[in-house]
Nucleic acid binder design. Structure first.
Lengths: 188, 188
DNA sequence: CCTAAGGTAAACAGATCTGTTTACCCATGA
DNA sequence: TCATGGGTAAACAGATCTGTTTACCTTAGG
């Protein structure tokens, strides 16, 4: 599967797969080397410690949401649908960042900072869209929408089904409606 | 600390403390025995495997919310305040059930069933209160309120601060208002 | 008194984990 | 041609984990 890619990429792909599927603590370095079809020597050449590998795994998951010209409200609601799809596909195992913080005790570990950054980046994505909608308090609403997402991820992890995602989308609609209504009422 | 209690209780108290504070996988049986001031022989006498200890730990956390005669809406909102307080006190490390599911790969482990049960019990608590408020769709709203709570727990775990709890409470108010308004509008 | 239950302390077995080391292989380019 | 960089395979070191075993102690009841 990773045969074509270079060793470094194969290692990262293997770590990503195994860390996410089975958990960071459950996966040994040997398993990653085997999955990547790389000797342990080579693995430690690219990533001198397991912690480096964990940091690389989380950094690799640090994706921006693709910019879009669609209406802000649509984009926000569509994101809930994307999450519902992720959850439904069966290989869902929760948020990799939250999982990493859970599995790693040490709050000084690079993973914690990455998790905070990632969550904040997502929150800012909401905030920018909400500003376009001219809601009254975009900062708070951005937090609230993200709480719903976070809740879906945790709930889906425990229950193993995507049912909660639809309820979250509906809640988001109510919150958006309320924020927009309050705003227009005040403005006009 | 646990000196007065019987060995069985000391062991459970020690497991609860260490499992929650440091994580299930991070804590060895030896550490629990030491914390409980009990020999490993005795520990394994009470709990033949670590999995039994994990199950006991989660079962021990399976508390009902104390019944109250306060208005339903107040009770629901007060619950958000309680969570804010839990988060603020510093020893907060996320939801023990969600953490257990994250740390344990095996979905057949007793911990997963306990986690599902616990979440469902909480959801039913919301549902019963919402029925008293005669909202239109108590089942969905119960899920939504719980998503907010779950979101707060995850967010507080990552960020280490209780800021999200207040936003969640505000969101809950909006959702409740919308559900009640919609209902009265329809009814009358 | 003295037995038996329940406890301690500590060594042990066997697995597994991170990280290192040794010895070797092989392709590429000066 | 042949040195070198990058790779493999596998043994090893040392820690740590779950669970067992051995030998001993303490204490309360008949």
């Amino acid at each position: 599967m990773y045969k074509s890619a270079r060793p470094g990429e194969r290692i990262l792909a293997a770590a990503d797969k195994l860390f996410y599927e089975q958990g960071i603590r459950a996966v040994g370095v040997d398993a990653i080397a085997e999955e990547a079809r790389v000797s342990k020597r080579t693995l430690y050449n690219y990533y001198p410690t397991k912690d480096d590998l964990i940091a690389a795994y989380l950094t690799g998951r640090f994706k921006q949401i693709a910019p879009s010209d669609a209406p802000a409200r649509e984009q926000i609601l569509a994101y809930f649908d994307r999450i519902a799809a992720m959850v439904a596909d069966g290989s869902f195992r929760g948020c990799p960042y939250v999982n990493a913080v859970t599995e790693i005790g040490d709050r000084k570990h690079a993973a914690v900072a990455l998790a905070v950054q990632f969550k904040e980046q997502r929150r800012q994505w909401y905030r920018a869209l909400l500003e376009r909608l001219q809601v009254k308090d975009p900062d708070t609403l951005a937090t609230q929408l993200q709480l719903l997402v976070e809740g879906v991820l945790a709930t889906a992890l425990v229950r193993g089904d995507p049912g909660a995602a639809h309820a979250a989308r509906a809640a988001a609609e109510v919150l958006l409606d309320a924020a927009v209504a309050r705003n227009t009422r005040r403005k006009r």
